[in-house]
Amino acid sequence: MHVPDGFLDAPTSLATAGVAAAAVALALRGARRELDDRVAPLAGIIATFVFAGQMINFPVAGGTSGHLLGGAMTTVLVGPFTGLLCMTVVIVVQSLLFADGGITALGTNVVLMGVVAVVTAHLVFLAAQVLLPKRVSMVAPAAALAALASVATSAATFVLLYSVGGVVPIPFDTLLTAMLGVHLLIGAGEAVITFVVVAGIMGVRPDLVRGARGVLVSRELETRMVAA
């Protein structure tokens, strides 16, 4: 999903850079509320985990591969604002140190893999928590749904950007079908990885998972009622 330099024209890249900068500024403010004693130590480690996870390309259909994006994983584990900062650090390091993703495309990549993925994941995760039973066992499935949706909206947003500022004229429908087709498969991989990681941490220390706080509080209250 890393967009290289040259795919999008200069005005579009400039616009996405502006959106990315505004979103990161917002996240820097918002993260202050998220970074408590539980989230703060985990956040840097999760950013590192996402960087490592992004190195593992897994094969999907027909000679194509995909890798974890991590927007949903970070959103569920450390919160959306801190999650966006995690994603931004990873994307900037990849671009500057590893030449993975363009420099002029930096804003585009932060928008696609950061902002769009995190906002989608946050909304879908919240919706899933409302619709699914309020149980600890439902946190990882909700995260997996958020992961699948986040990859799909990232891919669809690229198509939108390309229809506005793509250098080569490609019919919108053709590009949308191609991008969604392959990225739904990649999204399935994203869902599996996100499920395993979130379920793993939920299994040993659910209190470290920021997205699980709603269910944990209600469970503790129930326990007290039974004890009384």
């Binding site: 890393h2 290289p4 330099d5 390309n57 094969p59 194509t64 793509g166 250098v167 191609a178 392959v182």
Partner: peptide, 23 residues
């Protein structure tokens, strides 16, 4: 041991013929 195949975006770009604009 990761796959060396082009990722989703890269292979779509190749298939639809806009990969050449990559700098």
């Amino acid at each position: 041991y990761a796959s060396n195949s082009p990722d989703g975006l890269t292979s779509v770009a190749v298939d639809l013929g806009f990969s050449s604009s990559e700098q």
